[in-house]
Lab assay of single mutants.
Amino acid sequence: DNLVIALHSYEPSHDGDLGFEKGEQLRILEQSGEWWKAQSLTTGQEGFIPFNFVAKA
């Protein structure tokens, strides 16, 4: 599955970004460039995340 774990917390800075906490698990929905579309397994919310803040779970 496309699961990743957050290496750092991220505060959203643009509409459509997904904020998350360090250690949170996310499911990657789309990989494109440096911003990936993801869904939080904690909150169920979707949005874009910086790819370098996460690692394969």
Rank of each mutant, 00 (worst) to 15 (best):
D1S: 10
D1V: 10
D1F: 13
D1E: 12
D1Y: 12
N2Y: 14
N2R: 09
L3E: 04
L3K: 05
L3R: 06
V4M: 12
V4S: 03
V4A: 08
V4T: 04
V4N: 00
V4D: 01
V4Y: 15
I5A: 03
I5T: 08
I5M: 07
I5D: 01
I5N: 03
A6H: 02
A6D: 00
A6I: 03
A6F: 04
A6C: 05
L7A: 05
L7D: 01
L7E: 04
L7W: 06
L7Q: 06
L7N: 04
L7I: 11
H8C: 15
H8T: 10
H8R: 15
H8Q: 14
H8D: 08
H8G: 06
H8L: 12
H8K: 14
H8F: 15
S9G: 09
S9H: 09
S9M: 06
S9K: 12
S9C: 09
S9D: 10
S9W: 06
S9V: 05
Y10Q: 03
Y10K: 07
Y10F: 12
E11I: 15
E11C: 14
E11R: 14
E11A: 13
P12A: 13
P12D: 03
P12C: 05
P12Q: 06
S13P: 06
S13G: 10
H14W: 10
H14K: 14
H14T: 09
H14Q: 12
H14V: 10
D15C: 13
D15G: 09
G16E: 07
G16P: 02
D17N: 09
D17W: 14
L18N: 01
G19E: 05
G19Y: 06
G19N: 04
G19H: 08
F20Q: 00
F20H: 00
F20R: 00
F20D: 00
F20M: 06
E21A: 13
E21F: 12
E21L: 12
E21M: 13
E21S: 13
E21H: 13
E21Y: 12
K22Y: 06
K22S: 06
K22I: 09
K22R: 10
K22A: 10
K22E: 09
K22G: 03
K22Q: 10
G23N: 05
G23S: 02
E24T: 05
E24H: 05
E24I: 02
E24K: 01
E24Q: 07
E24L: 03
E24N: 03
E24W: 05
Q25Y: 15
Q25I: 15
Q25P: 10
L26Y: 02
L26C: 05
L26Q: 01
L26K: 00
L26N: 01
L26F: 08
R27K: 09
R27W: 11
R27F: 08
I28N: 00
I28S: 00
I28T: 01
I28K: 00
I28V: 10
L29C: 06
L29P: 00
L29S: 02
L29R: 03
E30S: 12
E30W: 12
E30T: 10
E30V: 10
E30K: 07
E30Q: 10
Q31R: 13
Q31T: 11
Q31H: 10
S32L: 12
G33M: 04
G33R: 04
G33K: 04
G33S: 06
G33F: 04
E34M: 14
E34Y: 15
E34T: 13
E34V: 14
E34S: 13
W35I: 08
W35H: 07
W35Y: 10
W36K: 00
W36I: 09
W36S: 02
W36D: 00
W36E: 00
W36G: 02
K37C: 11
K37I: 10
K37A: 04
K37P: 00
K37Q: 06
A38M: 04
A38G: 05
A38S: 01
A38P: 00
A38Y: 03
Q39I: 13
Q39F: 09
Q39S: 07
Q39M: 12
Q39E: 07
S40E: 00
S40M: 03
S40Q: 03
S40N: 10
S40H: 08
L41Y: 05
L41W: 03
L41F: 05
T42Q: 11
T43E: 01
T43G: 03
T43A: 01
T43C: 04
T43H: 03
G44N: 07
G44E: 04
G44W: 07
G44M: 09
G44L: 09
G44A: 05
Q45E: 12
Q45C: 10
Q45M: 11
Q45V: 08
Q45F: 09
Q45G: 07
Q45K: 15
E46A: 09
E46D: 06
E46K: 11
E46Q: 12
E46T: 15
G47V: 03
G47L: 04
G47P: 00
F48Y: 14
F48T: 07
F48S: 05
I49Y: 03
I49L: 04
I49C: 06
I49S: 00
I49R: 00
P50Q: 05
P50A: 03
P50M: 05
P50T: 08
P50I: 07
P50W: 09
F51E: 07
F51T: 06
F51L: 07
F51N: 10
F51R: 15
F51Y: 13
F51S: 15
N52Q: 12
N52C: 15
N52M: 10
N52K: 08
N52Y: 12
N52R: 11
F53Y: 14
F53W: 09
F53Q: 04
F53K: 06
V54L: 06
V54W: 04
V54I: 07
V54C: 09
V54S: 01
V54D: 02
V54N: 04
A55K: 09
A55F: 10
A55L: 09
A55S: 10
A55I: 13
A55Y: 11
A55C: 14
A55M: 13
A55V: 14
K56V: 13
K56W: 15
K56H: 12
K56G: 10
K56S: 12
K56M: 13
A57T: 12
A57S: 11
A57K: 10
A57Q: 11
A57N: 10
A57C: 14
A57W: 14
